[in-house]
Write a protein that binds this DNA or RNA. Structure first.
Lengths: 218, 218
DNA sequence: TTATCATTCAATAGATTAATTGAATGATGG
DNA sequence: CCATCATTCAATTAATCTATTGAATGATAA
């Protein structure tokens, strides 16, 4: 076997590590910030044992590292570029697979039945923030918000949305974001807040993409 | 199963399509330009039947498309971004896997025993070309050169190098390139030409990366 | 030290993927 | 229309991957 073939085989191993929905879910959670196995398992809907196995595979592929903190093992992404890699994978899949288009369409159809409510692009969001026209709403769970968020964002986890409405400004448009383009949290938040009459739209990306782009995070 | 999970599963399918060394070899060849199954099979060192199977998988993942031309099926990449995707996969693997470093080191050690001959970066190559200081040598097979190459490049396939030395200019540094960072052709060409006393270095990327970056191709 | 907790390891069975073989399809040239 | 060629399809076996179970490890707290 030639050196080239060996190199391609190693690249293939890395790609295979990405080739499982559960592992992608773990990576998506890790893109929000480091976390112990139990948290990762819960977010991905796995048993701890199973999550641990998948994390070992990600570790062997060089995608995550782990350090011990007391009883817990804390996992994190080895490399910010992994977020970019998953984003590119998403783009390629979205462009070239009809199945993908169908699912994405369904995800977006709910909160935008008449097509009037396009998601806010990164450029539009930056402009709106600079001009003070928009307020940022982070609807992820508290621990993810605490691990890092967009500057000036207000954190109201989706579950507490109704109870904490008074924290939302009334004088500006609200832009909600969560874990990424496919994360349901901001979709649901937008639906709920629309019902209540708030001027609100989704950010088309999420925290990890913002951070990977080198934009400021807190 | 939620929509999110379904989306991640589809992304995982695309990643799995990249998760095999033979398929990566096929994609690397396709990144040079479209080709019929027989050519692809030969380049990847596969039987035609086996190559066909792998190409079906790549097709199902939306990474390649095929059209019939007479008796032959011509395959091509669906999307220029696939080159970028593979490049990013390579970068992440190179940064985070010791095994990878070892292999890459070995690949580079041969033609640069004393560390004096670093590969030429894209920036350095562009500058050298603009100033007329360098001549470009494409050592890929004729059909790949014909399907697209860097402007002003001279094509001498590696196998004919010794026979066609008179086509090389003697007044400039020569920069050799081939299919990509891990392609052996330019390494071997550099070794041979060094022995013969030519001032020659490798381009650190290859034709597909140049093209994917939006630089001009002929 | 012992009990407890978080995580990993080892072993298993079931599911998926890969390579190989030979037959089938679709286009071309006689 | 028939023979030929390039490619694909179908079926098989071997190999690999996944989820599950229960035992083992490593750190903490009583």
């Amino acid at each position: 076997m030639t050196d080239q073939q060996q190199l391609l085989d190693i690249l293939a191993q890395v790609a295979r590590a990405l080739g499982n929905g559960h592992r992608l879910a773990l990576l998506e959670r890790l893109a929000q910030g480091e976390a112990p196995v139990e948290t990762l398992a819960a977010t991905a809907g796995l048993t701890v044992g199973n999550a641990s196995q998948h994390l070992q595979q990600l570790r062997r592929a060089g995608l995550v590292t782990a350090t011990r903190a007391g009883k817990q093992m804390i996992y994190r992404l080895t490399d910010e570029r992994i977020v970019t890699l998953m984003g590119l994978l998403r783009e390629v899949a979205e462009t070239n697979l009809a199945e993908m288009e169908r699912l994405v369409g369904r995800l977006f159809a709910d909160d935008d039945a008449d097509g009037a409510l396009e998601a806010v692009s990164r450029e539009a969001l930056l402009a709106g923030l600079a001009e003070g026209r928009v307020a940022l709403l982070d609807v992820r769970p508290e621990d993810e918000f605490a691990a890092g968020h967009l500057p000036e964002a207000i954190n109201i986890p989706l579950a507490q949305l109704d109870a904490m409405l008074e924290r939302l400004p009334r004088d500006r448009e609200i832009v909600a974001y969560c874990r990424g383009p496919y994360c349901a949290l901001s979709h649901e938040a937008v639906q709920r807040l629309r019902q209540l009459g708030y001027p609100v739209r989704r950010f088309e990306e999420g925290f990890p993409e913002w951070k990977a782009a080198g934009l400021p995070v807190v």
